[in-house]
Design a protein around this nucleic acid. Structure first.
Length: 167
DNA sequence: ACTCCGATTGTT
DNA sequence: ACAATCGGAGTA
């Protein structure tokens, strides 16, 4: 229950920041909303975004944690019983998401985005994005306060997040 | 062509 | 605190 927003051209931390331009890697961010943008980080971990914004405006939402409703047995197998879905790379491993799904339309299997349930707006907390060095103070991380499926140390999972850089 | 470093994670 | 691990970004 945790996401981060990346605002494209005018967001220095985005893979589609203006100084970078349109490249093979960030190309799907320019595509239709509802596509999956999957990228490799640190040469070993996959992370998945949902492309947002209108076509041609490269924006995306990084999925950093989610609440497993089913299939936890399979996830535990893939994750060797480590934390399953709290962390952008962890949840990709748990769900079996790899670069093959880059550009995939999330309206169709094998990976789909479905409507969830209403949440109390008062439980939605914000903080700076984790792990970014540019625009490090932009409050574009959103998470459900107190929810078990949130990445990072417990101290970050509060309704009154401390503004600290990284970890 | 070559260096630097990252939207991370797991182990020491 | 630090290694793993590699493609993309920045520089030349």
């Amino acid at each position: 229950m945790e996401v981060e927003a990346y605002l494209g051209l005018h967001d220095p931390a985005s893979h589609a920041a203006e100084r970078i331009g349109r490249t093979a890697r960030n190309d799907v961010m320019y595509g239709r909303p509802g596509l999956a943008y999957v990228y490799l980080i640190y040469g070993m971990h996959w992370c998945v975004n949902v492309v947002t914004g209108t076509e041609g405006v490269p924006s995306a939402v990084l999925i950093r944690a989610l609440d497993p409703l089913a299939g936890e047995d399979v996830m535990a197998e893939r994750r060797s019983r480590r934390p399953l879905t709290s962390g952008p790379a962890r949840l990709c491993q748990a769900l079996g998401v790899t670069g093959e799904l880059n550009g995939h339309d999330l309206a169709h299997p094998p990976l789909t985005l479905a409507p969830g349930w209403p949440v109390d707006p008062g439980r939605v907390a914000t903080s700076p994005r984790i792990g970014v060095t540019r625009a490090a103070d932009w409050p574009l991380r959103f998470y459900l306060a107190g929810h078990r499926a949130v990445s990072g140390p417990r101290s970050l999972n509060t309704s009154d997040p401390v503004l600290r850089r990284n970890v």
